[in-house]
Design a protein around this nucleic acid. Sequence first.
RNA 1: GGAGAGAUGGCUGAGCGGUUGAAAGCACCGGUCUUGAAAACCGGCAAAGGGGCAACUCUUUCCUGGGUUCGAAUCCCAGUCUCUCCGCCA
Length: 418
Amino acid sequence: MHNIKDIRKNIESFKKDISNRYVDFDSSNFLKLDEENRKLIQEKEKLENEKKTISKSKDEKLFAKSKEISKKIDDISKNQNNFKKKIDEILSSLPNIALEDVPIGKDETFNKEIKKSGSLPNFKFKPKSHFELGENLEMLDFDLATKTSGSRFVFVKGQLAHLERAISNFMIDIHTQKNQYKEISPPLIASSNSMYGTGQLPKFENDQFEINLDSDDRKFLIPTAEVILTNIVRDKILDEKTLPQRYVASTPCFRKEAGSYGKDTRGMIRQHQFYKVELVSIVHPDNRLEELERMTDCATGILDLLELPYRKIILSTGDMGFSAEKTYDIEVWLPSENNYREISSCSSCGSFQARRMKSRFKDKNNETQYVSTLNGSGLAVGRTLIAILENYQNEDGSIKIPNILKPYMNNIEKISKN
RNA sequence: GGAGAGAUGGCUGAGCGGUUGAAAGCACCGGUCUUGAAAACCGGCAAAGGGGCAACUCUUUCCUGGGUUCGAAUCCCAGUCUCUCCGCCA
């Protein structure tokens, strides 16, 4: 959410900034609504003041007039609320503005590679895809999932299920023990307030799994733990001393993936449900860029330990998420695709989410300001499993266990059939 | 599922129809004192929105939404959430 005062003041630059995000914004209409809204507010406040004066005077002769004024106020309020609603609708659908160093471009082709790390595996045979490997091992079962649940689900079985759990535990251990994140085991269902706070609502309702309850308030399966972890500070005025706050959680994530019907239909790249270890930082706005680098390092640190090759890219203005002002994607090497694939996405959201959530802190001058929020995957567990399968595969279809994971896997050397 | 109690500022907690945006305490900020710190004392300290270059000023807000009233934190209705007790259950 943007500050409407800032928009008003710098309408031209705002128009330009928002156009860099490739969304439509009718600025003249917006300004008109804003102007009308403020005009009505002024009318209303004048009447309210009058009414207040009468009530204070306790002059019975004026009581009738006060009643009349009340009616007028009601009318104006209704009208004004309509304008306010329209303004809020527009405002809440506008994405965050990108920082200056973010490459401008309409899609992922404008993303920029920042660094490459690790050496690509050199197979003496044709590497198989993760789903071939998994199915041959009889440890990934897509057909069974189709039977029990439908498309875009998977059964992970036996030692591969163990490996998935090991990955998750390993990541959490690193983030809590080395990276100073606090472990959280959160609810997997979020209220619409929370979904609004992080920016999933109102614009991306179609991507969410909504839970049907009898009550009026809507609930959603979390698409990422970011929703819950970030909303920890919703409606709060924090003590500056409590910053930064860092949270990590490993949770299932649920996504409808509406509009991705043709994409990644084979395998477990794109599922309705997957595990992800999520990092969230709540920080002083001055420290947010530093924190973004730190968070990204926390994510790549996991890949370093797993000895998986990856690259780091910065997303272009058109490819960034709704709430982000700057995003790094970490892409891991997938031999079967001969390409890199997203395994983590780390974003600074600046005050964008904080404004929606009303998350503030008192600074040294005793002024309240909005905190900055950051989130990143550290990492997507399902995709890490995929990356290990493919990068650590042997010619006979068995999978070597990365050294760092062995303690989490009863020190076995490899996973093979039976 | 049944029966009660409650929801007030960053926090604790008074107020229960008329300058109450809200006592008191804590926390926080500034000052005096001190070699420094602590203690003590003095002062400041809610948010959002509107108007104004600014000083400043106006409006709204005591869980949410309705209602009563000239006037509501205070009264009425509905809802949400929290706590206690009983029942049931991972």
